[in-house]
Design a protein around this nucleic acid. Structure first.
Lengths: 200, 200
DNA sequence: AATTTTAGACTGACCGGTCAGTTTAAGCAT
DNA sequence: ATGCTTAAACTGACCGGTCAGTCTAAAATT
């Protein structure tokens, strides 16, 4: 049960780090804020993490692990490529509704990627992982004669960028448009663009 | 020529602020960095801007004014709605190639919007302006029987989000896909989705 | 069974540096 | 003589990280 405590503490700290970073961003979040929110001491936090940056890099990892399994589960439940894509879009909209914070924090991650090599490397790896999942779907869709012969890499990236676009709704109020309406619309555009017309 | 000096100085300072923020982001940019880069004194900078935040809010304004005129020019040169949209996409890709920094800084703006009410309000206004431009195009396309009867607001937002997606390429290297390929692909998806099929 | 040792977990006051913003006293331009 | 500019020193709040020491529960020794 030794391992359990370490695990528990790490989760506790990461959870607080997320909470604080959501409200203040990386630079404005104070280690003392995390101390307060986690009900741990500063010493304990530095006992588990070597530095503020180290802690936030771990937050990225946790975020990825949580998402990665969800995405794979979602994809694997469906057969056809278009159903897989649909499920993927639906999954992210669902996640957005359940906890928008996950999308909010992505903005912080993007931003850190821009400024810091280590964040960039980490994020790049994560995204290329996601890109591979999507590329795989597109490829199988083409192989099965379900999709037209597009460039899988470009298409996958377009899809990824559109999913990322959900971030928009976490920042800007938009009385007119709901996130799921956006997602539905863009899903239609993309799937109609991909699907082979049956009568030709 | 009084007005001219004020103007010149403001541009000088804003330009330096942009330069510094691009490399370091808002919090990590030091007023002394701006002092150094602008070849002005700290006193002068505080003579024209009341605070760091005030300065960066002005940067947002400058950024918007520069883009807004460009966008309107681009749109007004074309007749049909689809050509206007195409020109719009092309315009942004062109801008991205000419100065990616404009897209890089957008990430910083989004991020500040998330954290600070004043940035949020400003950005929200700017984006609703852009959204209006695009909505207008869609509406005219529908009116002229060029586009199918979509929801103009949702469609406009989808387009805007896809344009914003160019940001991606400023952060993540992507040996496979170029920004213009992404833009072309998504342009096709959207325009094909919008256009009325001539034979029905 | 009682005592001592050990190691991992934890504490929080404190230090050293940082930085936005101010002040000052002088210089230049118009 | 007023608007603009400078260099440099200064202030004080603020914060990441440290460190000397405490606590606890289990293991080792007696």
């Amino acid at each position: 049960m030794k391992e359990n405590l370490k695990n528990k503490r790490e989760k506790q700290i990461i959870h607080s780090a997320l909470h604080v970073a959501l409200n203040k961003g990386f630079e404005n979040s104070r280690m003392d804020d995390i101390v307060k929110h986690s009900n741990l001491s500063k010493g304990t936090i530095y006992y588990y993490y070597r530095s503020k940056k180290d802690l936030y890099l771990s937050l990225v990892d946790h975020w990825f692990i949580e998402y990665s399994t969800g995405v794979l589960d979602t994809i694997n439940k469906k057969n056809t490529a278009s159903n897989q894509l649909k499920a993927l879009f639906a999954y992210f909209i669902d996640q957005y509704k359940k906890s928008p914070s996950t999308f909010k924090i992505m903005i912080e991650f993007w931003r850190m990627s821009r400024l810091d090599k280590d964040f960039n490397t980490k994020l790049q790896k994560i995204y290329s992982q996601f890109l591979d999942y999507i590329t795989e779907i597109i490829l199988s869709g083409i192989e099965d004669n379900e999709f037209i012969d597009v460039n899988p890499r470009i298409t996958a990236l377009s899809i990824l960028i559109n999913i990322e676009g959900i971030k928009w709704f976490t920042i800007f109020e938009n009385s007119d448009v709901e996130a799921h309406e956006y997602m539905d619309t863009i899903t239609d555009f993309i799937l109609n663009g991909l699907k082979k017309k049956s009568n030709e």
